[in-house]
């Protein structure tokens, strides 16, 4: 039963009538890793995540969490897994603290140690001053914090965050990532879906990019970025460009009011580039380069950026 993988997806398919939401997904998330699941809307990310939590039953295939089958061994997998769902949830009958105590109870947890953990969660997620308020009275950001606290109430080894920063302010986003990084450092496996690719790039060690129910790419973030063998060069100009010689024309990706952006192979030499700029008689005031971002890799793989 033991496995070095935190989560294993084996040929997971999910069919909704004619729609094939998941087309035989197979991959593993290593224990203790910070894993990003990216993809455009409708890619199947939330469906895949829900199969882990038992909220969606796969049409075929198997999902294992720490070696336990999510259907046959659901009690074990649900104790290991904490899910922060994408949709905001409320309960008009109970305060935040009461909800956390009740949720602890569902996992058979109670007593002084659990109370102290609930207090810590309330404190860490800046909910302490709202602990006795009803969730209906909370803002969207506050409800999101409550969902995170609910997911952590049983100290799960694997924390799954489905778009946790959607619609939340910068302050909460920072608080959330600090807390998540700390959990990761303590050995928790974190699985994250997000539309903010900068976040994924900064946080995730490994990334899967999904599209239309399939995994288009799966690798470490560094490998995914390095696999794209080009970089961007921004050339600032004091006067608008009149004409460009052919090598520059083919590499031009963006015209800005005071400059041009070129996409260059990493092997292209800088001196060659400078000579092309000179030949095009451009009045260059500055040149800066940057590597490809995860967002650009994502757009390349999914074709989302193509008009």
């Amino acid at each position: 039963m033991s496995s070095p993988s935190a989560v294993q997806f084996q040929h997971v398919k999910k069919q909704y009538g004619e729609l094939e939401a998941l087309k035989g997904i197979s991959f593993e998330v290593e224990e203790g890793s910070f894993f990003g699941l990216l993809g455009p809307n409708g890619a199947g990310k939330s469906t895949l995540i829900s199969t882990m939590a038992g909220l969606v039953t796969p049409s075929s295939g198997q999902v294992k969490v720490h070696g336990f089958d999510v259907i046959d061994d659901y009690r074990e997998t649900r104790r290991i897994l904490g899910l922060v769902p994408q949709e905001l949830i409320s309960d008009p009958f109970f305060s935040i603290r009461e909800l956390l105590v009740l949720q602890s109870g569902y996992f058979g947890l109670r007593g002084a140690v659990q109370s102290a953990w609930i207090d810590e969660l309330l404190e860490r997620l800046a909910l302490a001053d709202k602990a006795n308020e009803n969730t209906n009275a909370l803002s969207g950001g506050m409800k999101r914090r409550v969902l995170i606290a609910m997911a952590l109430v049983h100290k799960p080894k694997v924390l799954v965050l489905d778009e946790p920063t959607a619609g939340v302010d910068v302050d909460l986003r920072r608080t959330l990532w600090e807390f998540t990084k700390e959990l990761h450092q303590q050995g928790h496996t974190i699985i994250l879906t997000t539309h903010y690719l900068e976040e994924a790039e900064g946080l995730c060690e490994k990334v899967a990019i999904m599209q239309k129910g399939e995994v288009k790419a799966l690798d470490t973030t560094a490998t995914l970025l390095s696999r794209h063998n080009y970089r961007y060069l921004r050339v600032s100009l004091s006067e608008p460009a009149q004409s460009l010689i052919k090598p520059l024309q083919s590499r031009l990706v963006e015209k800005e009011p005071n400059g041009l952006v070129f996409k260059l192979e990493k092997t292209a030499s800088m001196s060659e580039l400078l000579s092309w700029l000179h030949e095009s008689r451009l009045k260059v005031t500055d040149v800066s380069s940057r590597d490809v971002s995860l967002e650009e890799v994502f757009l390349d793989l999914t074709g989302e950026g193509k008009s």
Binding site: A53, L55, R75, R79, L83, D91, Q103
Partner: peptide, 18 residues
């Protein structure tokens, strides 16, 4: 039905309760 409408039935469904 209230739990379904507010979404909080999910909390129970995510727990190990059979």
């Amino acid at each position: 039905i209230q739990s379904k409408m507010h979404g909080n039935l999910t909390f129970v469904l995510l727990s190990p309760i059979s």
